[in-house]
């Protein structure tokens, strides 16, 4: 019933939106990852629609979820990662705004339409997508970089010069891939081996931290687990860095723009959803944060450096990115124990 009401309002709004000029005064409150929203894109949005934008930032999906669960945040737009979209839809936190019926939806790359976290795109549209792998200084290590062995069994020149992400899932998933085991694993034997692998490899790691760009460019480490856009930003300051596409596999992720179910400015939020599906606007996002977006035609507006960057344009022989689903609580509990033991 709730969904029906949403879809009714959405259809009505869409009809109205098509008839009236896209000039609706008011405000729009966006809650996005920190340092992730291009200011010029927001200015363009305000110039075109007359809607004033307020921007607020968060640092993890979980922080955002905790805040939204409290209700009455006043935010209209959130930008959750793939698995978080699935969780928020399940918990009824997102409005079914049906972007798939909007004017600019035909720009969305077909491969990002039927995604597991929002099949058919009734709730969300692509913001940016990327991969979580690692990047190595090829001036320090000249061998083959496309293997996770560099993280878990590194050559002497990289030992003690490695930064891992301070992220339970990213570290354990890399370990599972290196040993050839499945994600969201609750097999005790396999997990025990992963725990031993991590325990043993820890001696080679210098730090476990999210600030990967800074760690690499300051010369604190020569290898860091990182995201492809961050790897590109680091390479711009340290040209010998190279982003690896390990044969064992790596994580893929997508951040998606969605509207909260209790959004106070629902209509403005829908205008924004339609706005960022425009190739020119999507390109502004990519030029700012250095990740690919899922909008076809945006390449024409993107920086030259983005179009040829090896971090963004995946080589043909690289494995397909692995979009990891949220694990059941028993698995999270087991991961948590491995993680605590690793860092005790």
């Amino acid at each position: 019933m709730k969904r029906l009401t949403y879809s009714l309002t959405a259809t009505l709004a869409l009809g109205l939106g098509a008839a009236a000029p896209a000039w609706a005064d008011g405000v729009l409150n966006i809650y996005n990852w920190g340092n992730y929203t291009p200011p010029d894109m927001l200015e363009k949005f305000t110039a075109e629609t007359g809607i004033t934008v307020n921007l607020d930032g968060y640092d993890s999906n979980e922080t955002m979820l905790a805040k939204v669960q409290e209700g009455n945040t006043g935010y209209d737009i959130v930008v959750p990662g793939d698995y978080m979209i699935a969780i928020m839809i399940e918990q009824g936190l997102l409005a079914m705004v049906e972007p798939n019926k909007m004017e600019n939806f035909h720009n969305v790359d077909p491969k990002w339409v039927d995604v597991w976290w929002d099949p058919g795109r009734s709730y969300s549209v692509p913001y940016q997508w990327g991969t979580t792998g690692f990047t190595v200084d090829t001036a320090i290590y000249s061998g083959d970089i496309n293997t996770l062995a560099l993280l878990f069994d590194p050559p002497p020149e990289l030992q003690g010069r490695i930064n891992m992400l301070n992220d339970m899932n990213d570290v354990i998933n890399a370990g599972l891939r290196y040993l050839g085991y499945g994600r969201c694993n609750s097999n005790p034997d396999e997990l025990r081996q992963v725990a031993e692998l991590l325990q043993n490899s820890k001696q080679y790691w210098r730090t476990m931290d999210y600030s990967t760009i800074e760690k690499l460019t300051s010369g604190d480490v020569d290898l860091s687990q990182t995201w492809n856009g961050a790897a590109m930003r680091a390479r711009e300051q340290r040209p010998t860095l190279q982003y690896a596409y390990p044969v064992e596999g790596f994580t893929g992720w997508m951040d998606n723009v969605a509207v909260l179910a209790d959004a106070p400015n629902m209509e403005n939020a829908k205008i924004f959803i339609n706005f960022i599906m425009d190739p020119e606007n999507a390109a502004m996002i990519s030029n700012f944060a250095r990740y690919a977006n899922g909008i076809t035609g945006s390449e024409a507006f993107m920086d030259e450096a983005m179009l040829s960057a090896p971090e963004i344009v995946m080589p043909a022989d690289a494995p397909t990115p692995d979009f990891v689903r949220p694990c059941p609580q028993e698995t999270v509990d087991l991961y948590n124990r491995i993680w605590t033991q690793l860092k005790q």
Binding site: S60, E62, A66, D167, M168, N169, Q329, V332, N336, T340
Partner: peptide
Amino acid sequence: MIAEQFGASRN
């Protein structure tokens, strides 16, 4: 450790 329980550890 406490901060982590309210984030990724979900406990």
